[in-house]
Write a protein that binds this DNA or RNA. Structure first.
Lengths: 220, 220
DNA sequence: AAATTAATTTAAGTAAGCTTAAATATATTT
DNA sequence: AAATATATTTAAGCTTACTTAAATTAATTT
């Protein structure tokens, strides 16, 4: 299937989660930056391919097949985000931009290799759930802000919710990377600071940081 | 520029290295799996974009701009091959197939991140040179077969020239990966076996292996 | 050198994915 | 409920990247 089709079903899937009554051609058109006419045309075409149900003037509804396609694209997008975020010093915005292109040129085989390499993560660096190869999706995000962690426990970094270069520079410098493990050595509840052990270095993070770094409990 | 255009200049660049007189539309058409007519059309179009010189019935010649574009695509292709080969257990054939698609959807920024991550390698896992960001290309391959290495020296694995699953399984098991470092502990010149230290494990490789594993001298 | 073969080019046509403009239906306001 | 505004649809047309078939040129054989 083409890039245009993949983006179309993805846009419907995402829009539908917010307001399924408003998933009409015009709405999808706006999100994709195409004309209403083009969206109507595409809707008809995809209906004939059994990817969605189309009735004049009604909201578009993905079929099971269409939903599966959307989830497959979203899976690839989020796996790429997770991989790029782990490997390189790139912001959430940058990884999103790259993943938006790579998602359409990734075989299922490669997606599985990426997932495997990352330890089959259930969430991407934004905290959004990554569908598995069967299109199943975990909806409960168990990650918590660093400020809510407990002394003595070990966690895996699951999100770095920022787009500021200085933040990422700081993270890079201190080994704060998606997928890395940290241990909480002290919680200063008064002034909201957190002392952590990362790669055997002890660092203290203030509220600005502990609120935007998210982690999951490590399961050993 | 489109995927079709990128593949067209890439095909010309590659063909030209073998026989520059034979870089005519029909030849490129065959390599790309399109008709001669389509190739002639494209040649005219690219001439108007200043990517190549086109004269009726003559061989196609890339301009500097066209050459630069071809090298940029080739750079991305080979960087992807190097990255996928390093990270995942994929054969040379598999990484090639994936890189063929990813190369067109990769920003220069991301290409630079990949290169940086890999330590700006000059050759990909096939042993083909990786152009740098300025389109400069190293033509002298300094890598040698493991059978030609010297006792006591340390090398970086630069190629694993095989497409057989068993070989890659063996490599994965023993940490023989593109980019990894090994030390030659003994050379058995008679029966062409080589003893190496990899990740502090000592293993012995026979001729079947030492002829298809290529390495570069490590520069510390 | 003429005849034959092969390649290139031109011409006409197609499908995908868009566009704008006009027609039509739906929603909203009064 | 009628008038107005908004959204959707239809229609016609464009560009890209192809196709096949016919015409032309180049290369090869005899």
């Amino acid at each position: 299937m083409s890039v245009a089709i993949e983006n179309f079903v993805k846009a419907i899937y995402k829009n539908d989660k917010n307001d399924s009554n408003d998933t009409k051609p015009g709405n999808i058109a706006r999100k994709l930056g195409i004309s209403n006419a083009a969206a109507t045309d595409m809707a008809k075409k995809l209906a004939s391919k059994n990817l969605l149900q189309y009735e004049k003037y009604q909201a578009l509804q993905l079929t099971d097949q269409g939903t599966k396609m959307a989830l497959n694209v979203i899976r690839k997008h989020r796996l790429w985000e997770a991989l790029l975020f782990k490997l390189f010093d790139m912001s959430l915005h940058e990884i999103h931009r790259e993943a938006e292109l790579l998602e359409h040129e990734t075989s299922n085989f490669l997606a599985d290799r990426i997932s495997e390499y990352l330890g089959n993560p259930k969430f991407d660096p934004h905290g959004d759930p990554i569908p598995n190869a069967n299109g199943e999706i975990t909806t409960i995000d168990t990650s918590i802000a660093l400020s809510n962690t407990q002394e003595g426990k070990t966690y895996i970094i699951s999100r770095l919710m920022s787009d500021e270069k200085e933040f990422f520079d700081f993270c890079a410098l201190n080994g704060l990377k998606y997928g890395n493990s940290i241990t909480i050595t002290k919680q200063f509840s008064k002034n909201k600071m957190t002392q952590i052990n990362i790669n055997n270095n002890i660092i203290i993070l203030n509220e600005n940081f502990t609120k935007i770094i998210y982690v999951n409990e490590a399961n050993f």
